[in-house]
């Protein structure tokens, strides 16, 4: 009897994976694709930046225009990310914890900025605040500059990074339900205490994940910012716009040197994101091993 019973077991194992040569072929093709489309472009940024040595690289970064671009990029991100963070938490709380009419429509609207072309987004703000826009005459009369100035850049950045944090938090908080929060309220905690001590620890990794992706996009946005900035060197140039100007002036080394800063930002973003994911998975695994008295810890997210 042992003969026939061991036979199907082996066949079953063979049936849930591919022959070794198929596996190796698929892995090779996939890795070649990653090499061509991800690794090479990334490597090219640093090679081109260091083409004329470390001296030329550092000189390009020491330039005052590069510095003012760095400063403006940091300012735009420092305003846009906290604004969208507050919005993301508020929207996720409203959408995940309550039932109301038009909820799925609201969720779609939150997603909307992702599907709008960045150039169209920039144009919308020009039409609102530009010289010929709705508020243009009023703004001119009061000597407020939004388009071709820093506020316009911040607004465009806020728009393109609008959904990042909300869309990370909404599915996460929906999966977690509101049992724990309700228990906290029943036990006498205030709303803020409940959020601070019950909700926040549960959504920590999703929040970090959303914030760093939001930040990466805020610092790297090109199309929308390009439309509203006016490209005034040293004044309304963010880092990506500065890259474009240098590149179009055939200052290849300088362009890639500035670009390498943004590439480093991207790599740091990916590193933090991966760590956040691994930590989150580890916590999920730990929660799954808890005794069944705490079944809500099992809600699987991502």
């Amino acid at each position: 009897m042992s003969g026939p019973s061991s036979q199907p077991v082996r066949r079953v194992q063979a049936g849930t994976t591919e022959a070794p040569w198929v596996r190796y072929l698929l892995i090779t093709v996939a890795l070649l694709f990653v090499l061509l489309f991800l690794v090479l472009p990334l490597a090219a940024v640093f090679t081109e930046a260091l083409r004329k040595g470390a001296g030329a690289y550092l000189d390009a970064l020491k330039e005052p225009d590069a510095w003012s671009a760095i400063k403006l990029t940091l300012i735009a991100a420092a305003i846009a990310v906290p604004l969208n963070l507050v919005f993301g938490v508020a929207a996720a709380w409203a959408i995940a914890k309550y039932e109301f009419r038009g909820k799925s429509f609201l969720t779609t609207l939150v997603d909307l900025p992702f599907s709008v072309s960045p150039v169209v987004a920039g144009l919308m703000y020009v039409l609102l605040f530009g010289a010929q826009g709705w508020f243009g005459p009023w703004l001119q009369a009061h000597d407020v500059k939004i388009i071709f100035a820093v506020p316009g850049i911040v607004l465009a950045t806020v728009f393109v990074t609008f959904p990042f944090i909300a869309r990370e938090l909404i599915p996460l908080m929906q999966a977690q339900g509101s049992d724990e929060e309700q228990a906290a309220i029943v036990l006498g905690a205030t709303g803020w205490q409940t959020f601070r001590h019950v909700t926040l620890p549960n959504i920590k990794w999703g929040l970090i994940y959303g914030v760093i992706l939001c930040n990466a996009r805020a610092m790297g946005e090109f199309g929308a910012v390009s439309v509203v900035s006016g490209h005034i060197r040293g004044q309304t140039n963010t880092l990506p716009l500065h890259v474009e100007i240098l590149y179009n002036e055939y200052q290849s080394v300088a362009a890639f040197a500035v670009a390498s800063l943004l590439a480093i930002l991207a790599l740091v973003t990916l590193a933090i994101k991966s760590v956040a994911e691994w930590r989150h998975e580890a916590e999920m695994k730990a929660a799954a091993e808890l005794p069944p008295e705490r079944p809500q810890a099992l809600a699987v997210v991502r």
């Binding site: 990334l42 940024v45 990466a216 946005e221 090109f222 990506p240 670009a259 991207a266 994101k273």
Partner: peptide, 20 residues
């Protein structure tokens, strides 16, 4: 490789453009 797949989300498009 898994982490790198998200590179296009994190790398500013202008950088990708000049690099490609």
């Amino acid at each position: 490789v898994d982490a790198l797949v998200d590179l296009p989300f994190a790398l500013p498009t202008a950088v990708a453009g000049i690099s490609l």
